[in-house]
Nucleic acid binder design. Structure first.
Lengths: 340, 340
DNA sequence: CTGAAAGCGCTTACAG
DNA sequence: CTGAAAGCGCTTACAG
């Protein structure tokens, strides 16, 4: 098998390349028998069109750019896989650009733009510079979908999950268990994912009659080391809270490790809740209670949304959120009797 | 900023589009001052060439296809990230196709081929049908690099890690601790990654004077559930081996979980070794001793190899392996005194 | 060092 | 229903 051009392929079938092109582009003014024959023979001879030539003519690459970060989380793997699946079903493909840790994404975004992607999905929190550049890209006519991170005042499409409600529910669960001293370990306050979750925590606490000054909010981060540092800070407090919530599972893992090293038992001494349902959470000696985000649905919907946008079906910026849900495992218990 | 074509861009600079093209393609017969000016203005005006037009003319897409599976492992995420990085540095980009679990990849490979990738990197173990198709693809002039999984008798390029030696070393370590009854939990025997590792196990055991019939090899799988099943089988044995090695970390996690449920302590009652250094291994109550595979280096080298092949620098199939290394944590100890 | 011209492999109005 | 023709945005020999 050598690569067949549409012309050669048509010649082999004794048809004009015109007819072949029409079949491939779904024009209906073609005899049904011919249509089937073309499709069958294409399969048999391994004929495939020339994506670049087609793209050039149609001014469309059928590529969707995905700027993502590798935070060592299986969550993003699942999201990307779902996107990939859905994109393929609809004739598109994904061009992925992984953001290097802790650096801005402008270079990535430029890279994807230069690849003529039809649309861009951006998962990492964009820096100011990124935003400036994204605006340019959007103005050049490439739709942008912010995924999970919504930038305030930045008018693009957004798809995320309602992690504010998710966090509120987790906190309410802890309150229901009898906890009053619940610490919340956050990540960078620039990230909307962080501020949303923090809001959920504050709402639940206030609703239980615990005002902001009595709430314990500690800066950690998205990663394990941030969680460990936050746990140290918590351990240095005059009295350790009876429950700790973390902005993410990785953070919770760090807290878990540091607490264990300090001889603190979970859930006997302290209850712990993560966020994101990383698969490793089940492996802890005390499987982690967490809030699950719908990775597959998020990936699938992201692609569908982008396609709708490309179709012109959303003249105004879309703002959509899926639901997270509390996943109770073993890391929470009522507070100890002897803690006041 | 609206999308600028090369012609418009050249016009704005008061240059012929010819000159611009020459600068962009690295021709040296251009005045150095002009060269710099073109590059600077391109940056300033957000000019980028048209990848598809360029690709059409050059008969080159600058895309490398990656068929991978999502086994829920952070390992592959790291490999893909490293590839992405290296590809970008060299002007290429990655088109990734995730293989759906337990199905064959022909569809994925076809998809990537249809995207006019310049080369193909295949990570999942190919089925017979896949291999047939891959052969066609190779004959159509698209170089193929098998990653990690080498198919016997299938003459393509291969890059992996020497997991046979890695496994032998892990086994030797266990033998050095005094273990004689060491079980090995394998995955599908069609996978060369499995047979290689099994060979390493057998070599170490034989070298210690333990012939094949006295070795304990149990079928598990690549995933956690396979490990759990294998552990059940092991638990049903008249006497539990004093040490267990698993073909992969995920498998080891399953064994770990099942053992814990059965009240077996690690490493006091049984020593356990995984393979692959998944980040979750550190989170276990007893951090898992494992063998680390160089994910970043593997990804980087894969891209470099592919580029060399595209350059015609490897007329014969490349076969290359990087080294794995034992990573001792806490899941192994000498066998219990009372186990004979 | 630069201009005019051909062509990469498609799609799509435009005639027939 | 089908053929001849133009053009998508580049690159590259070929002259000048």
């Amino acid at each position: 098998m050598s690569k067949l051009s549409q012309r050669e392929f048509a010649a082999r079938l004794g048809l004009s390349y015109k007819t072949v092109s029409r079949v491939l582009n779904g024009s209906d003014c073609v005899n049904e028998i011919t249509r089937r024959r073309v499709l069958d023979e294409a399969e048999r001879l391994g004929f495939c069109g020339h994506a670049m030539a087609r793209g050039l003519r149609l001014k469309k690459s059928f590529a969707i750019g995905l700027a993502m970060r590798n935070g060592g989380q299986t969550f993003w793997l699942d999201v990307a896989e779902a996107m990939d699946q859905r994109a393929r079903e609809t004739g598109y493909h994904l061009v992925i650009s992984h953001r290097r840790r802790d650096c801005n994404s402008t270079e990535e975004i430029r890279f994807l733009r230069d690849r003529q992607v039809d649309a861009l999905i951006v998962a990492p929190h964009p820096t100011k510079e990124d935003r400036l550049f994204l605006r340019d890209v959007a103005e050049a006519g490439i739709p942008i979908l912010m995924l999970v991170q919504q930038v305030p005042g930045f008018l693009t499409h957004y798809l995320g999950t309602d992690s504010r409600t998710g966090t509120r529910e987790a906190c309410t669960y802890l309150l229901g268990l009898g906890h009053r001293e619940i610490a919340y370990v956050i990540g960078p306050p620039e990230d909307t994912a962080v501020t949303n979750r923090l809001q959920g925590y504050r709402e639940a606490m206030r609703a239980a009659g615990i005002p902001d000054p009595h709430q314990v909010v500690v800066r950690g981060g998205w990663r394990r080391d941030g969680g460990e540092a936050a746990a140290q800070a918590l351990l240095a407090l005059p009295r350790l809270p009876t429950a700790i919530m973390a902005v993410a599972d990785l953070t919770a893992f760090g807290i878990y490790l540091a607490l264990r090293r300090a001889g603190v038992r979970i859930p006997e001494d302290v209850s712990l809740v993560g966020y994101g349902n990383e698969s490793a959470g089940e492996l802890l000696a005390t499987p982690l209670t967490t809030v699950a985000q719908p990775a597959e649905e998020l990936g699938r919907r992201a692609i569908e949304l982008v396609l709708e946008i490309l179709d012109g079906r959303h003249p105004d910026p879309v703002v959509a959120e899926l639901s997270d849900r509390l996943l109770v495992r073993d890391s929470c218990a009522p507070p100890r009797r002897d803690s006041p």
